[in-house]
Amino acid sequence: MTQVTVCITNEERSSERLDTFLSKRISILSRSSLNRMIKAECVLVDGKTPKPAQKLKAGQTVVVNLPPPPGNDMPPEDIPLAVIHEDEDVIVINKQSDLVVHPCPTAPNGTLVNALAWHFMHRSSGSLSQVGAENARPGIVHRLDRNTTGVMVAAKTEFAHWSLYEQFALRSTRKRYIALVHGEVVEDSGLIDLPISRHPYDPIKGGKASQTGFVVRERYEGFTLVELKLFTGRTHQIRVHLSHLRHPIVGDEVYGGRKLKLLIERQALHSCLLSFSHPTSGKRMSFSGAAPEDMARTIRLLREFRMVSSGGGGGGEAEVDLSVVFGEEALEREEAS
């Protein structure tokens, strides 16, 4: 581990929270990663184990034991994967929750990259593109947050990697998300046009231009199911934008959401549709992924006991087939048999 020592001088602001203080000085780690490090006792204040919210004082010394950066050696790990499509160039999966996409200082293993390495070795053939391998991101052309579920694509060859990378950069891919949010959204559809930054407690302050389109799909008492389209790709963009509208995502405690105990205890955000041009053939390909059971079960219960309206009047703007996302077709077949 690398040890970093910071002495708090009289010139620095007093009464600043420890996690805020560290997030401004250790930019390579996210605030959530730093919080996990504090809770794991990798941070000391005057030789004692602190809490993330501890207020600092002038004259104190903060010692941070940084974990080593992830290396190029990413061992295969037998982690279940839901593979939607695979060929010689790409692999498309429906990512589960609690799965980090690539190794990082706070998650050096147990990631999607490790799982894909095992998959290619034992169930398929080929390997991830080595583009990005020096940063522990081989084959990764886009990401989903740890607890965001849904459709992702990874590249198996360098040519495919650069082709997909360009498509994501030029916004020629098509991505749609479904989110369950707190409150009943009034507008049937709209565009959230607010800048986003990496400021630890004000992600709107001094940020870059960011746009998210939304369409209401279903309203329930106290909740709304919305379909979302990204026009830009900022970190946590959907989560920040919905929180700013005072309709945070259910389960997203970082941005003001609340868990629904015994139903869903992580952010109810699912990447349900991804479309891109195949790197080799040029053929347009579209993939849909069913939502995991915790989110599907929550929606079924809301429909049964709290349904207000179906369809927000967004007309042709809605593109997601909810019967695919929430498995209604399979459920109907099961009930009929």
Rank of each mutant, 00 (worst) to 15 (best):
T173G: 05
R171L: 07
I299T: 01
S127T: 11
L164R: 08
G316M: 14
D78K: 15
S281A: 04
F214M: 10
S309I: 04
G183N: 10
Y255A: 05
I79L: 14
G150E: 02
L99C: 03
V320E: 06
L22S: 03
P103F: 08
P138W: 02
S27A: 13
M295F: 13
A209G: 10
P67I: 11
E221T: 11
R171Y: 08
V320H: 01
R258L: 09
A115F: 10
S288M: 03
A133P: 01
V324C: 04
K229I: 01
R17T: 13
S323P: 08
A154M: 13
D98N: 15
P195R: 11
H270T: 05
G312M: 10
H119G: 05
R31H: 04
A154D: 08
V254N: 06
V181H: 05
S163W: 00
G222T: 03
L128P: 14
P75G: 11
V151Q: 03
E332I: 10
G257T: 09
K208F: 06
R143P: 01
Q3S: 12
G251A: 10
S14H: 00
V320W: 02
S210L: 04
L225E: 02
P76G: 11
S163Q: 05
R146N: 08
S33D: 09
M74V: 14
S33R: 01
Q211T: 12
M37A: 06
R146I: 14
I196F: 02
L331A: 15
G312T: 08
L194I: 15
S14L: 03
R123S: 15
T280K: 06
L144T: 10
K175Q: 08
E12S: 05
K39I: 11
S27E: 13
V43H: 04
F168A: 12
V324F: 00
I93C: 04
D73Q: 10
Y165R: 12
G314C: 12
M37H: 02
H102C: 10
G190Q: 09
T173P: 08
T173S: 09
I140F: 04
G233A: 13
N109S: 15
T235G: 03
D87F: 04
R303A: 03
D98C: 12
I178S: 01
H119E: 09
S14T: 08
K175D: 02
F276Y: 02
Y165Q: 14
Q3I: 12
P76F: 09
P76R: 12
A318E: 12
R246T: 03
E41W: 00
T149H: 13
S286D: 08
C272A: 09
M285G: 13
D98R: 14
H247R: 09
R303H: 05
R36S: 10
V141D: 06
I192H: 04
P108L: 15
S163L: 00
E332Y: 03
V62C: 06
V63D: 06
V101L: 06
V100K: 04
T298Q: 11
R123V: 12
K259D: 12
V151R: 05
F287S: 07
